[in-house]
Every structure is written in C-alpha cells, then in structure tokens.
C-alpha cells in the first residue's frame, strides 16, 4: 500500500515520464481509496495549464478586460 507521499510523488513523476506498469497499478489502487490524492492529481493538471497560460500572457489578457487597477 502506497502512502500519500509516495502516491503524490508518482503523480508528479508521471508529468515527466510514463510510469512503469507496476507503479501504475499501485497508484490506481491508492487513488481508489484516497480522495486527497485524486484531487492532487487534478490539481497537477490545472497547475500545468495555468503555468502555460501565464507564460503565454493570459494574465495581461484579463488585465485588458477589466482595465488596469
């Protein structure tokens, strides 16, 4: 049984490399039982999308819509 520390590490690693079959199996087993790590996995996706949007100037785009403070 993975700990949440292990599971979040695998979720993080999976953003760089494909996980091994064994790692995917134990991660899946953990995620079935752990809502915290399931949420963490979704947050990683959001984090990645937000970082790329930020680098692409999305923050200035919102500034235009609302006027500069």
């Amino acid at each position: 049984m993975l700990t949440c520390n292990d599971a979040t590490r695998l979720l993080s690693d999976s953003q760089e490399d494909r996980l091994s079959f064994k790692a995917r199996m134990s991660l899946t087993a953990h995620l079935m039982m752990c809502s915290g790590c399931r949420n963490f996995g979704r947050h990683l996706q959001i984090l990645r999308e937000a970082a790329r949007a930020f680098a692409a100037g999305e923050d200035e785009r919102t500034g235009e819509e609302q006027g500069q403070p």
């Binding site: 930020f54 999305e58 919102t62 819509e65 403070p69």
Partner: peptide, 11 residues
C-alpha cells in the same frame, strides 16, 4: 484563468 486577481495570487 480569466480572473485578473487569480494571476496575482499565482505570481
């Protein structure tokens, strides 16, 4: 991502 305030928090 469409909220200016969010990006200040992100930064």
């Amino acid at each position: 991502v469409h909220d200016h305030q969010f990006w200040r928090v992100f930064e």
